[in-house]
Structures are given as structure tokens and as C-alpha cells.
Design a protein around this nucleic acid. Structure first.
Length: 469
RNA sequence: UCCGGAGUAGCUCAAUGGCAGAGCAAUCGGCUGUUAACCGAUGGGUUGUAGGUUCGAGCCCUACCUCCGGAGCCA
């Protein structure tokens, strides 16, 4: 048998006889010619069988290959501009082939499919080129997150997934039986990381987190991956400095490594190219002013653009004018409320880069956030909103480090003090100003890949209506 | 939970209350350069479920189920 190679390495073997191992992605015949696209995980290569050059049984086998059959193919690597594939431009002239396992009728044809069907067949859908490209970019995003943090003095310290009580108390938690008790799946590792920074200075935790909110939107999953850096002696400003470096590094690495994949996804990279520090920073007050200005001054056409108006969503019996007026109402913003999704979408379209919004109202944020000095109604919090309408990808804050203030807040939020005794201890034994944030991996993947829906950003999405496969 | 939309062949979709249809996929045949090939032939249906109206229901009515899009919540 000749050398077994990866399709990604085809260019190094032009003129050689090689063996590919993989799966039939597509097959099309033209009489005495048969074109077989083979994938092997590293790429896709067109293999060509020409009847006069082959024993009858080899050509017959090449002709009747079913989609997704596994096989080995041996043949000569040739350069040919006509050859499709990834990397493309090379093809293999088949000499022999061996079917390892003939696939039955494959449900996912290279035609259009509905999303429900594709999600039901997610285990197979992952083989298609688009999903393959997304998973490769996701892997780079994850490895860049880890490498960047490791290289900048952050220590990975894992936090538990089974927890005794709510992290932030607001969101819905998944309950699980824990021996004779109940436990909850973690929705954040932050509180634990606040403990470990007092041992290690700068840390991060990185793992799955769980929220049983009944959310049905393109931005929500019940199980998603989050990286949460936490740093001792960090201010909100230092936090923003670090975040913009961090996010720029992630985007930069993907652009550097995945032109081919971004091309497969037909991603317009012009906005991604602009992602470099510094990012614009506006405070919440200014964001409210900007939104209300959009609310009062935008033309109907601008409202449609800002809120991504889709004629398909026009309710029956309503004119477009009436519907646009309703959309416009979504932009209205009173100081003290948190931003809804339409606000974020409209706001991010004012900027070409990701934008920081800081100093949110204390009332809409978690109990542990440090108040702004002399202005307790605002807190030292910051969200990073991705451009092109993708919205919040990180959320963070300075944390309260004064013991008595934190104790008061726990009481104000009607949390059970005994659940937070250990957390208060962190303020009794050498508490320091500190800050941290969480970055949602799938939202970042969706943004960088330009996905319409977050469910394609994770191999097996878990949502309100999906636990299979 | 609320608002809107949709369930018909393996898939994507048609079908004035009057014989259940097309394209793709599958199978068979033809073709030496295909890129979602093309041409010909063949097979393929409990119209989401349960009830109701009607001479007659995929279509109308009631209830339920499932999914999709959006809101809220958030990363």
C-alpha cells in the first residue's frame, strides 16, 4: 500500500501515488467518468475514476458508492484547477478503492433542509462542510482563550459544576439529586474564582454552565461554555484593558488560521479585521441617551435596519407602517432598566468595533457588584457588545470587597446568609479590590463565524426543546 | 409564560370543500470533466393527534401535541 496521507497535505504529494482514508461526501457520474468527493476530516478531495484505465470491478465499485460510505482510495495526486474541494485544486486519479462500510440511504442530501430536521440529525449534520468549518474555528477560539490566558499569568483553576445554591440567585437553575439532598448545576464559577484569586492572583475557570431559563432565541442555550477570568487588584478600567486585548487576540488568531473556513461560511471579515484595541467605551447614561435619540430621530427605514426588520415577521392584518411603529417602541429606554435585546442590537450598530458599556444601574445587576463611588445607584459593571447586532459576549464587574457592605447586600437581596458564609470569609481574611468577567464561547463563535443562530456554534446544542441527540 | 407562524412522500414544498402532486433523494438505464450535472424509466402517502361540521375535509370548527421566529431573562 502506498503512503497514507491527509487531504490537507495533498499539495506535498503531487505526482505521487497515495492512499486516502475517509468518507464519500458526494458522488456524480458522467458515463465513463466518475467523480467522488472524499472527506477525511482534514479536507475534501475530488477523486476521479476513468473507466478505460481501471479493471471493471474497480470502476463498478466507484460508480455505486453511496454517500457517506467509508473507504480507502489509492491513486495518483494531480494538480487540476477544475478540482473542487478543500484545499481544492488537487485531485486523485483512482487506481484502487476498498469500501470499509457501505452507507445506507443518507438522510442529509446536498439540498436544502429545515432546521428541525437538521437538528434531529445533528450527529450526521456535523459532517457537512459548513458545520466542519464552524467546529474548527470553535476549537481555535477555545485554544486561543486558554493559550492567551496561560501566557499572561492566569492560572486555570477549575470550579465545581455541582453547587449547593444559586450563584447569582436570579436565573433558573437545573436541579439534580445529590444523595439525600438537592444540588444545582453551576451557572457560573465566579464566586469560587473569587476564592482562588486570593491563592493565585489571576485565575480563570473554563467549563460548561447551565441555565434552565425558558429562552427560545438565537442567543440562548441551556448548556453553554464560558471562560471566566478573575483578577485580584483589578479595577474596572484594567478589566476593560485586558478584555480588549484578549478578544482582539481571539479574533486575530481566527483570521490568521482560518481564512478557508471563514470563506466556506461566506463570512464578510471586514468588521473582524477592525477588531483591535482600544474598543469604544460608553457609560450606561450615554447609551440611554443614544437609544432615545434613535427612538425619536430615526426614520422608519433606519428603524427597520437597526432592528433587522424581516418582512416574514410582519403579523397578519398589520400594515408595515404599524409594525415599524411597534418596533420603534422597542428602542425607547428609561434610565434604570436593563437593555433588552433590541436595545443591544441597535446600540452595537452604531459602532464598527465591539463596544464596552459600563456603569449599569445597580438595581439590574447582581448583588456582588461594587457601587460607583458617590453614586450608589450605579455599579462598576461592564458588558462588551459585539458588532453587527451580535450583542453581549462578555459581562463583568468590580466585586464588592468590603465585608459589611457585602453582608448588607446579601440581606437586601434576601439571600440566605449561611449559603454565603464562605464568600463573606473572603472579605474577612485579606480581601482586596478585584474584578472579573465571563465570556460566552458560543456567542463568540456565532459572532466570529457570522452565524444566524447560536445552536450551530456548539456540537450538540441543549435548548428548551432539544435534548436529542 | 406571552405574541406570531408552521405541521402533506426520506427531504424541500404545492394542491377554490370534489381523483394526493412536483423537484430533490433512492433504484434501473444513458452520457469523458462533473461543481446542487443532465436525459429517460421505476418505486414511494394513516396529510401531527383526537373529535366535530358536511353528500364529501389536506383545506372549515374545537381541543391537544410538536416545532420554528420573536419577547422577557441572560453569556
Amino acid at each position: 500500500m502506498s503512503t497514507i496521507i491527509s487531504i490537507a497535505d495533498l499539495a506535498k504529494h503531487v505526482g505521487e501515488e497515495v492512499t486516502l482514508r475517509g468518507w464519500v461526501y458526494d458522488s456524480t457520474g458522467k458515463g465513463k467518468l466518475q467523480f467522488i468527493k472524499v472527506r477525511d476530516g482534514s479536507g475534501i478531495c475530488q477523486c476521479v475514476a476513468f473507466k478505460p484505465d481501471l479493471p471493471e470491478e474497480v470502476f463498478a465499485a466507484a460508480q455505486k458508492l453511496s454517500q457517506e460510505s467509508s473507504l480507502t482510495i489509492t491513486g495518483m495526486v494531480k494538480e487540476d484547477k477544475r478540482a473542487p474541494g478543500y484545499p481544492g485544486g488537487y485531485e486523485v486519479a483512482i487506481k484502487t478503492l476498498t469500501v470499509i462500510s457501505a452507507a445506507g440511504e443518507y438522510p442529509i442530501s446536498p439540498k436544502e433542509h429545515g432546521i428541525e430536521f437538521l437538528m434531529d440529525n445533528r450527529h450526521l449534520w456535523l459532517r457537512s462542510t459548513r458545520q466542519w468549518a464552524i467546529m474548527r474555528i470553535r476549537a481555535t477560539i477555545v485554544s486561543t482563550i486558554r493559550n492567551w490566558l496561560d501566557d499572561h499569568g492566569y492560572l486555570l483553576v477549575d470550579t465545581p459544576i455541582l453547587t449547593p445554591a444559586a450563584g447569582e440567585s436570579t436565573s433558573e437553575l437545573f436541579e439534580v439529586k445529590y444523595f439525600d439532598d438537592m444540588a444545582y448545576l453551576a451557572q457560573t464559577g465566579q464566586l469560587y474564582s473569587e476564592a482562588t484569586i486570593l491563592a493565585h492572583g489571576k485565575v480563570y475557570c473554563f467549563g460548561p454552565t447551565f441555565r434552565s431559563e425558558k429562552s427560545k432565541t438565537r442567543r440562548h442555550l441551556a448548556e453553554f461554555w464560558m471562560v471566566e477570568p478573575e483578577m485580584a487588584f483589578f479595577s474596572l478600567e484594567a478589566l476593560m484593558d485586558m478584555e480588549e486585548q484578549f478578544v482582539s487576540a481571539i479574533v486575530g488568531r481566527v483570521l490568521e488560521k482560518h481564512r478557508m473556513e471563514l470563506n466556506i461560511l461566506e463570512r464578510d471579515t471586514s468588521f473582524l479585521e477592525k477588531v483591535s484595541a482600544p474598543f469604544p467605551r460608553i457609560n450606561y447614561d450615554e447609551a440611554v441617551v443614544r437609544l432615545n435619540k434613535l427612538y425619536t430621530e430615526s426614520s422608519d427605514e433606519e428603524v427597520k435596519r437597526l432592528l433587522r426588520y424581516d418582512p416574514a415577521n410582519l403579523p397578519e392584518g398589520k400594515t408595515e407602517g404599524e409594525y415599524v411603529r411597534e418596533l420603534r417602541e422597542l428602542l425607547k429606554m428609561d434610565w434604570g432598566n436593563d437593555f433588552g435585546s433590541p436595545h443591544e442590537t441597535a446600540l452595537t450598530q452604531q459602532f464598527e468595533k465591539p463596544v464596552f458599556v459600563y456603569h449599569y444601574p445597580t438595581a439590574v445587576k447582581a448583588f456582588y457588584m461594587q457601587p460607583v463611588e458617590g453614586r450608589p445607584e450605579s455599579c462598576r459593571s461592564v458588558d462588551l457588545l459585539a458588532p453587527e447586532g451580535y450583542g453581549e459576549i462578555t459581562g463583568g464587574s468590580e466585586r464588592i470587597y468590603d465585608h459589611d457592605l457585602l453582608e448588607q447586600r446579601i440581606a437586601d437581596y434576601k439571600l440566605e446568609r449561611k449559603n454565603y458564609a464562605w464568600y463573606l470569609d473572603l472579605r474577612r481574611f485579606g480581601g482586596v479590590p478585584h474584578a472579573g468577567f465571563g465570556l460566552g464561547v458560543e456567542r463568540t463563535v456565532a459572532w466570529i463565524c457570522g452565524l444566524q443562530h447560536i445552536r450551530e456554534a456548539i456540537p450538540f446544542a441543549r435548548t428548551m426543546n432539544r435534548l436529542y441527540p
